[in-house]
């Protein structure tokens, strides 16, 4: 067996082209945090349960801990830094602040990623549907109420805009 195998990967992270050599056992979120310094994505459970590491790979939100960095070779990856910089999550970030939808903030990057997916897939201001969509993201501070409030508000604004 070839110990400490490394592979060369080329990917686009937050609109920036990255070339890197990584050990094959490194998962995507560790790579983003430790190699690229993108520490907005958080590492919680490393088992896919908590959702704190949720990032976008080739247009879909995935668990950053349940993919190898090697598997992202050739992919386009966006993290919370990218969503924030591009303004894509601007309304959500504002609504989270307004509604106190975060306290310690650990879950927030993953929560925003899941909420963004909900809104961009045409999700409406339906509290049950919102709760269902963010069911894969743990928050241990807020009790979720304020998070649902925030997402509901933005979904409502989007509906209104669409209706005009």
């Amino acid at each position: 067996m070839n110990h400490a195998q490394q592979v060369d990967i080329e990917l686009i992270v937050n609109h920036e082209k990255i070339n890197c050599r990584v050990p094959v056992r490194v998962n995507l979120v560790d790579f983003l945090r430790n190699e690229l310094g993108l520490t907005g994505s958080h590492v919680g459970c490393e088992q896919g349960v908590c959702g704190a590491c949720t990032v976008e790979v080739d247009g879909t939100m995935v668990r950053g801990c349940l993919m190898l960095a090697a598997q992202a070779d050739g992919s386009t990856v966006n993290t919370i830094e990218g969503f924030a910089e591009s303004g894509r999550a601007g309304h959500l970030q504002q609504a989270f602040a307004t509604h106190n939808a975060l306290q310690c903030g650990f879950c927030t990057p993953g929560m925003l990623a899941s909420a963004l997916e909900y809104l961009e897939q045409g999700g409406v201001a339906d509290r049950a549907a919102i709760r269902q969509h963010i069911s894969g993201n743990y928050c241990r501070c807020t009790g979720y109420q304020a998070i649902v409030d925030a997402i509901e508000e933005v979904a409502g604004q989007t509906e209104t805009t669409d209706g005009q």
Binding site: N2, V7, V24, R25, V26, N27, D30, E46, L68, A70
Partner: peptide, 11 residues
């Protein structure tokens, strides 16, 4: 914990 070492193949 982190994954153990392995050989990675992507056919």
């Amino acid at each position: 914990m982190k994954a153990p070492d392995f050989n990675y193949q992507r056919p």
